[in-house]
Amino acid sequence: METINYQNFRIEAENICVDYNGKVALYDANLRLKPGQICGLVGMNGAGKTTFFNALTGFVNISKGKIRINGESVRSAQKDQTIAYVPQNEGIDSQFPISVWDVVMMGRYGSMNIFRCPRESDVQAVKDAIERVDLTDHISTPIGNLSGGQRKRTFLARAIAQRASILLLDEPFAGVDIRTEKLISELFIQFKNEGKTILLSTHDMIHVREFCDLVLLINKTVVAYGETSEVFTPENITTTFGGISPDFLFGPES
């Protein structure tokens, strides 16, 4: 019975807990996402958003609970290149001597041989991905010379080149220009139509209402989870942000 259920979900996290040397970062968190769903991950700094991502990618081990990716373990999801992680701009060394092409090619590493020699298909995948994020003119530009938005698009291209069916995006709209924001939102619609599943963390409440079918409010554990229209209420947001009213957070319009 259970196995049939797993087939329907891209991501299934059941009662997961993560602690760092005894310090609890996340507990009893649950999440179920289907193909084509976009889910917003909302919470304060230190509420466990990045920890949640890390648990899903296998970058940290969970101490309790169960994670299934396409019905299989995180380990086999890694092997199958199922999940792509798009880091926050602050999370990467922008002075690293590496070009746009090299970064996007890293999306193909997992499926290459041990020497990471690009095949014809890898080269094509990288070219296509760079084209989709509109960076063809910057193909050999060092990432240090890119704007914040261009750098964000480079990492999106890496996720595209990886051909992952699940995308985890850490603050995709933070510090990007309007052009990039527009391009990212167009890509989201395309990803949705391709049946990809997207989990994105954001501080911007307007983006949640605009893109996210579902929203997961967390503060060390799940505060609320469900359809954005039902769950993304001022009461829930206030609880998530430790008693601060949404009026104060995003102005009276929200």
Partner: peptide, 21 residues
């Protein structure tokens, strides 16, 4: 042998882990 993997490890270990390296 591990030239490129080590470069990736230095640059973005999280991505390396995510794609099963």
């Amino acid at each position: 042998i591990f030239r490129k993997d080590l470069m990736l490890y230095c640059f973005d270990p999280r991505h390396a882990k995510t794609v099963g390296i």
